[in-house]
């Protein structure tokens, strides 16, 4: 009897596997039908990590575009930024036979292998936020190059400190790929243009606001000549600002960074945080899905120089980069116009 039960279970398994065949034949879909006129397209939209307010606001725009275009949008990503998990989701989508994938890459090299595989199967790939290897995708929706972000941050820091003095960086983790990329360009800009400024240290905050606040508190007392804190992950901007405020150094130590308006509004208004640099994330999501749809439909091909993206109008294309426009600087004067 004991030996019989596993057999029963195996039989059940096989039966279940058999069941699944029926719907499969009923709906002969898959990647083959890409570009088919009547069928609803399925697009995958992957953030670097879920549960991140930045990508949630991107998704808002993506949902809007998906509704306009009448496509099905799959939103999935790792719960913590993890290249291995991103890979798995891409491969999962390949098997599911999505028509196109839009992805924000945690790590260039980590995901490109999976994306190339998808490309081979006829799935169109568009990257946004941060790029993959250029041969692994059709287009990159470029909200700002790492160079553009690095330079913008460094220039803003120089402007606020009068191009002289010490500053410190708070980053998410020492291994975060895109932040390391930005830091490279910050360093380059610093060396080239601002000889009187000095980057004293880089501290990780594990992408948590509480830890950023503690780190900034220690920084403020350890480096009494500090002129500015540059927070390059979004939770660190309000964290650093709160520390500066509590230390009574509002105005003497400036705070800038990359972050969302809603998280920083109060500090910008109080004058603790001088400027927050970001692009219009909702538009980024919207543009990405518009572009992904056009690529999947075959309407947008390599070599195009402009692209008409719904409510955004005509967008410029440089090479294989679709440009969203320059990073936007939120400050006291304009922050109230934005709600995301």
């Amino acid at each position: 009897m004991n030996r019989f039960v596993p057999l029963l279970l195996m039989a059940g398994l096989l039966f279940a596997a058999g069941c699944s065949k029926a719907p499969e034949t009923a709906a002969p879909a898959g990647p083959a039908s890409t570009g088919g006129s009547g069928k609803k397209l399925t697009l995958g939209f992957m953030p670097k990590s879920k549960g991140n307010a930045y990508f949630i606001s991107c998704k808002q725009g993506a949902d809007e575009a998906a509704k306009e275009l009448g496509v099905e949008l799959l939103f999935d990503g790792p719960t913590d930024p993890d290249p291995a998990k991103q890979n798995e989701i891409v491969e999962n989508w390949i098997t599911q036979g999505v028509d196109a994938i839009a992805v924000a890459c945690e790590n260039k090299d980590g995901i490109s292998t999976a994306l190339r595989k998808a490309k081979q199967k006829g799935i169109k790939i568009v990257t946004f936020d941060s790029d993959a290897a250029t041969d692994a995708r059709e287009f990159f929706v470029n909200q700002a190059t790492p160079e553009g972000i690095g330079y913008a941050l460094m220039d803003e820091a120089a402007r606020l400190t009068g191009e002289a003095g010490d500053f410190a960086i708070i980053t998410a983790s020492l291994t975060a790929a895109n932040m390391n990329e930005w830091r490279k360009h910050i360093d380059a800009r610093l060396a080239a243009k601002y000889p009187k400024m000095k980057l004293v240290t880089v501290r990780p905050c594990d992408d948590m606001k509480d830890k950023a606040q503690s780190e900034a508190t220690a920084l403020l007392s350890a480096y009494p000549n500090l002129k500015l804190i540059m927070a390059i992950c979004s939770p660190a901007v309000p964290g650093a600002a709160e520390a500066v405020k509590q230390a009574g150094k509002t105005g003497t130590v400036k705070v800038i960074g990359l972050g969302l308006p809603n998280e920083n509004r109060r500090y910008v208004k109080e004058g603790v945080t001088q400027s927050v640099i970001l692009w219009k994330t909702v538009d980024l999501g919207y543009l990405t899905i518009q572009a992904t749809y056009a690529v999947a439909k075959g309407e947008l091909k390599a070599g195009a120089t402009t692209f008409k993206a719904g409510r955004l109008g005509a967008m410029e294309i440089q090479g294989d980069n679709i440009l969203l426009g320059k990073p936007f600087v939120f400050n006291k004067d304009n922050i109230d116009q934005f709600d995301f």
């Binding site: 290249p83 890979n87 490109s112």
Partner: peptide, 9 residues
């Protein structure tokens, strides 16, 4: 599998 090695693996 990933084609890369990094300290957060």
């Amino acid at each position: 599998r990933l084609g890369q090695a990094k300290a957060d693996a």
